[in-house]
Design a protein around this nucleic acid. Structure first.
Lengths: 223, 223
DNA sequence: ATATGTATTTAGGTAAATCTAAAAAATTAA
DNA sequence: TTAATTTTTTAGATTTACCTAAATACATAT
């Protein structure tokens, strides 16, 4: 099913507002969408009849499971396009949001899945926000030292919390940078150091201290 | 100034129909846009009031200079996105038109100019149609043997008219393929052979016969 | 030159997404 | 717990881009 850009914007705004509060008010939505509460009420009725959200007059609004899926698809598109704009076209991360607001409404699913592959399946957009995969699963973000290790986990470095030259020197020495893909094999019990590698490179170990400063994104439950 | 997708589609359709006949009829437009003649009349009045076209009731329609500029911008976007879809995302050339119909309405000029650069300033789309440059100039397409040579001309190979193995062998030997950029330095008076090269490679010559089978695209009047 | 047929426009209407102003419900404060 | 305030909804318009049906203009054939 296809929805108008306007409807998609409502769904997306509700999704984002729901991160803060379970139930979203008409006024909050009106503010988020720069529109009038009366217009919001109108639209909520339409979206309700399409079963994208639960809505009772005066009692706020909540996405249904189906509405959630739509929201995640739009967010996926938005963030992949942002990544494209920055990484491939050389835009600054501050200037891409507006353009992605338009691009996120392009409907082809095949397009976005191919774009994802073309970009190398990035886990986060240029602002560091996670990019849902084609099934709508949000990557999880954690300090690498906190990963549970059921089996070899693949994770992408998305940020480092300590900017000291000493730490950056160490990262550089290990060829670890934002965007680097890492496989984590095991954690040593003695000092909690981690054995990791870049794909098809030799394994090496990093200290727990270092690992505590590296944030990675990875697929939840990718078995 | 920004125009709705619908208006852009009218402008584009008029532009294309004008390639065949100087003045475009209401019915022809209705057919091209899969809409009703009455709807066309309505829209023509709006576009006229925006000075994008000349229109007198019952006398057909013609784009103004301004309308032409808009049309070329849309066509530029359409064709660059098609090129992107095929060359970067691996789509087949038959399946990109529909997606490009959506992408062509994304408004950012900066986006499209950067996309152009990212793609290496292609002169034609995957169907072989010329891509207007950022000033709206359509590349010209000619057999390379027919180029006028005021100075060194840069041109991109877009097709070859003879598919014999003998000719393809010769092209291959000279490393000439679709998409190859060529500089043409001079034509020898004796046999009309041409001296050409790929950028920053040594010059070599090709026969008039070969040159007659190579079609290239180049910027009109790029001084 | 008139009649016939086709093309085009006009008139009046609809759906989507907005708006303002006013009414009604819910919340908060005295 | 009633009054005041805020939030939300309803009612009625507006704009854009369509539509159908009917009227009008143009073109053509006899």
């Amino acid at each position: 099913m296809k929805y108008s850009s306007s409807k998609e914007n409502y769904i997306k705004a509700i999704f984002h507002l729901q991160q803060d509060e379970d139930v979203v008010s008409t006024n909050a939505l009106a503010k988020a969408l720069s529109t009038r509460p009366a217009s919001v009420t109108d639209m909520l009725k339409k979206l309700k009849s399409q079963k994208l959200l639960q809505y009772q007059p005066y009692k706020g609004v909540k996405l249904t499971a189906e509405g959630n899926v739509i929201a995640l698809q739009i967010i996926r598109k938005h963030r992949l396009w942002e990544y494209f704009l920055v990484e491939k076209l050389g835009f600054g991360w501050e200037e891409v949001h507006e353009i992605a607001e338009e691009l996120e409404h392009i409907s082809s699913k095949k397009l976005i899945d191919r774009l994802d592959i073309f970009l190398g399946n990035p886990k986060t957009d240029p602002h560091g926000d996670p990019i849902p995969d084609s099934q709508g699963r949000m990557p999880l973000i954690r300090q690498i030292c906190l990963l549970e290790l059921p089996e070899n986990i693949q994770a992408d470095v998305i940020s480092v919390s300590n900017q000291s030259t000493a730490m950056l020197e160490l990262l550089r020495h290990n060829h670890i940078a934002i965007g680097t893909r890492l496989e984590v094999r095991r954690r040593f019990a003695f000092d909690h150091s981690l054995e990791i590698r870049m794909p098809s490179q030799p394994f090496f170990t990093i200290s727990e201290q270092l690992a505590a400063n590296i944030y990675v994104a990875f697929e939840a439950d990718s078995k």
